[in-house]
Amino acid sequence: MTEAELVNKIRKLRQIKPSSDWVALTKSQILGEEPKVLFFPFFKPAKAGLISVLILFGLFAFSQNSLPGDFLYPIKKITEKSQAVFVPEAEKPKVQLELTNKRLEELAEIAETNQVRKLPAAVEEYQTNVSEAAKSLEKIKEPEKAKEVVVEIKKLEENKQKVEKVLATKIDSEKEGDSVQGLYKTPAEVLIEDLEKRTLSEEDQKILEEAKELYQAGKYSEALEKIWILSQNK
């Protein structure tokens, strides 16, 4: 056997190779390399934006079921506020009342599930919303809009009573302007003014006068009760 033949024989040992599967697996085990697409998409700048947007959407969607005192609750509030920006000025009082109704629903859920720790935050949220609703109602000038919001206020009143029944306590603020009763003030005022401009029968005129007296006495919801049917017929 010549040296060249021997070297050729030795070189046949190059056929000895590890399996490619083992090579790949061992590499990932040693270097701790995870499949890039699945686990490390954040390192790819092009995907980072998309992932962030998806996470953001997920957070917004997830936060919609959160309650006051929850980690995601501020995100829910931000979402609501950003939605409110696009609402026309004339619709804002109604939207504000709907939000206040939402706060009541949250309060009801907290009360029913006995999540005592979240209660103070939820009551505060509700009161803040009532106050904001009262402010937005001040801008109402048209009787039609006033009538619309009265329907919402009535719903709010009913829900509030239900929650108070479960909690066995009053949840309205002591201040008139921050209570549901206070919400009736502007609609009552607008509807009274509207009726004053109209020609009324003697009997209707009498009802209107009684409503005005109730209004002067600060009994806004009762004043509204008086003139509600009159307003509906006009």
């Binding site: 190059r14 000895i16 190779k17 590890p18 061992t26 590499k27 270097l31 701790g32 390399e33």
Partner: peptide, 18 residues
């Protein structure tokens, strides 16, 4: 470093195994 050593791994794995 992981990338660099990955190249070294690819270069020598067959030889060291054999």
């Amino acid at each position: 470093w992981r990338k660099e050593f990955g190249k070294i791994y690819d270069q020598y794995i067959d030889k060291i195994y054999r």
